[in-house]
Design a protein around this nucleic acid. Structure first.
Lengths: 215, 215
DNA sequence: CATCACCGGTGATAATAGTCACGAAATGAT
DNA sequence: ATCATTTCGTGACTATTATCACCGGTGATG
């Protein structure tokens, strides 16, 4: 626990010293195992969360259980949804699940609000978080609205490559299909095409990215 | 101009009196004709905008000119994009077009920031704007990801019905097709189905909503 | 009234994606 | 070693959506 708090300046370089101090005094560390659901659609939000370590996937889920992957949250980032809902005591509109073992700092809603006026660097951090997530949502809309599944799959792989900082994507076709709201068979065929083009190498339960076109 | 400023308390009932006063002192009214483009993708944002009268449609556009309608802005609402980009001097990621003759109040970026600390009611207004638009984006994603074109068309009609507060939607099939990134023929066939179900009545250049299922 | 721009209907066809059915190979547990 | 589970490939079929071609109707304009 103490260790985690010492990482804060490095994780949040934009934060002013007194904010870091209050954060480590009042924030509470919570840990999740890989696969744990951190936030559920419809769930009441009582905290704002800052990611300390691990990786969180944020996705949309409809009544029938269909999913659509939206973005990852990395260490040093915050959950925009938990901030946005914070001020109005709203419920979450998205699902969040730990992809790896993950630690977050939770901050009571009242403080989140108080700090906006108290710490300029917190204010900028929150706004930048909004801006970034808003942008991600727009990119997501772009892809679903304008792109075919093959391009969306490429986008998905690239997103994971960046997020996980590795060329090895340890996800089964079934899971990928779920996150793109498609079906395993479709992903299988599209992956084969990518493989034929020499962009990926296929393995059991993981995909190796050989070369991905920038755009 | 003076008239417009007198409407402010009614338009923004949440604003405190001194904020209203400063708003009418420093805000500048700008007018747009129906059809005018108010904001363009990639354009630099220098102002935050509050809608006073008229109606604005906000939509996404890709390189090839394909569109996707996202939401309307009504009097009393603000453009979340212009607020979000404000703090970072970013460029717009969406298009905004006046649907009817429209008046907005523009506020310099510096004030927008200043007021966040100065006026609690402004702070809440901005956050509520973020929250609302964020939610709209999520709904949009839901529909593109999980629904077929027939349901998206219904959703589109309902959105317009609410926004325009009328059962007469004065939009040609060609335009609807554009806003849903589909094609005229598809919309034509789907409309016919809706008409057969007794939900709408079709006319030249407009659609009359007879009954729309709530969900 | 002739012409032109726009609006909409419709059949035929194509492209994309989803579903079903089946099987083979790899992995893990007992 | 055997068996169940997971993972993936694939052919056949269906559903949805997009595209093409062509038509008729409407209304504004000169």
């Amino acid at each position: 626990m103490e260790n985690n708090m010492q990482q804060l300046p490095a994780l949040f370089p934009g934060f002013q010293p007194d904010l870091i101090e209050e954060l480590s005094d009042t924030g509470e560390i919570r840990s999740f195992k890989a696969g744990d659901i951190i936030m559920r659609t419809g769930q009441n939000i009582r905290f704002t969360m800052l990611v300390v370590s691990g990786l969180i996937k944020v996705y949309r889920e409809d009544e029938e259980g269909d999913e659509y992957f939206i973005y990852h949250l990395h260490p040093g980032e915050a959950c925009a949804v938990s901030m946005i809902c914070a001020t109005r005591q709203e419920t979450s509109q998205v699902m969040a699940k730990a992809v790896a073992d993950t630690e977050v700092i939770t901050i009571p809603l009242s403080l989140m609000d108080e700090w906006m006026a108290k710490y300029k660097t917190w204010y900028y951090f929150v706004l930048e978080t909004y801006r970034g997530r808003f942008e991600e949502l727009l990119y997501t809309i772009d892809h679903i609205a304008f792109r075919n599944m093959d391009e969306r799959l490429l986008f998905y792989l690239r997103k994971h490559q960046k997020s996980l900082k590795t060329n090895r994507i340890d996800i089964s076709f079934t899971e990928i299909a779920q996150e793109l709201n498609s079906s395993r068979e479709v992903i299988s065929r599209l992956m084969k095409k990518l493989s034929d083009r020499g962009l990926v190498k296929l393995h059991r339960s993981y995909v190796e990215i050989v070369a991905l076109p920038l755009q």
